[in-house]
Amino acid sequence: MASQYPKRLKQRKVLLMGKSGAGKSSMRSIVFSNYVATDVRRLGATIDVEHSNIKFMGNLTLNLWDCGGQDGFVENYLTHQREHVFGSVAIMIFVFDIESPEFQADVINYSNIIHALQEWSPTAKVFCLIHKMDLVQNQLRGRLFDERSQVIRDHSEVFGKTIEFFATSIWDQSLYRAWTQIIYHLIPNASEIERMLQNLAELIDARELVLYERTTCLVVAKVTRGLEKQNPFKDRFERLSSILKNHKQSMAKHTGVPAGSANFAELQIKTGRFMFFITQLTENTNLAVDLPPSEQMFNSARINIQLVRHKFEELDVGVKRLLPQPQS
């Protein structure tokens, strides 16, 4: 059974770039290291490149390069370290500070980096985050975002066709929206996972299933069925990430364990309109289940998930043996 899935070791290199102070390390610490938004004041400027290996789904290790944005470092990336930095990149995330007083200069800087990337990793995917949007008045956000995106796209060379733009802020769930898309792009067997979730949803007659990674709370895959497709809360997936992440912090504080390991075994919520629970599915993932308000369905869903759990584990298994332990 296990053999029918591709078991290649996936080490994906992700570059995080942008001017110094743009907010790169802040967002990295929040998404991957359990910082809360107010903690980022403690961060100093990044010196050179900070590497982190983040084990994501079983067979995916994210190799994140947080590249300090001070001019001297960037100069160095573009010259002496050109191949080392820009070689075999899967994704480059470029962060623009919306408050930056010199957008023109930022674009020139961006353009230099795009050329280096095009030279060494022409098949990479570029995500562009227009960051610190909380500092802009609500009515102006949309227009400003469109204008900036257009200029940046025009300077993106071969990446111009596929580049994706997100407006982000560490103060709300927009950060999760962007990172969910980025991660989705990296998961090698997303369609496989989605197919299995679909089957599971039909088996237990769920309204919605959301599979998310335990540390980051980023959504990996989801299935929505029937009437739930009309759920008016279109942003509910990133909201869920953000709710669960906050809850994790709060439990960690209370129990005194590090936020990384403050995991619950199960969360249940039952109301007259829906029933809901979250349970661990595989080593790195939790499953959120949204059901109609029926005790019977609720109980049988829990049992059925127990029973199919090993099938999802297989997506992880074999790989674990191949994978060198990522240093943290």
């Binding site: 309204r207 919605e208 009437l227 759920n231 008016p232 809360f233 509910r236 909201r239 869920l240 709710i243 669960l244 906050n246 809850h247 709060s250 439990m251 504080k253 209370h254 969360l267 919520i269 109301t271 309109r273 829906f274 809901f276 949204d290």
Partner: peptide, 21 residues
């Protein structure tokens, strides 16, 4: 603090999935 944060979780999830079908 933990109880107050927990209320937030329940309220937020109830808002998301408690819409009127």
């Amino acid at each position: 603090a933990i109880c107050s944060d927990y209320i937030d979780v329940v309220i937020d999830v109830s808002e998301i999935y408690g819409w009127d079908r």
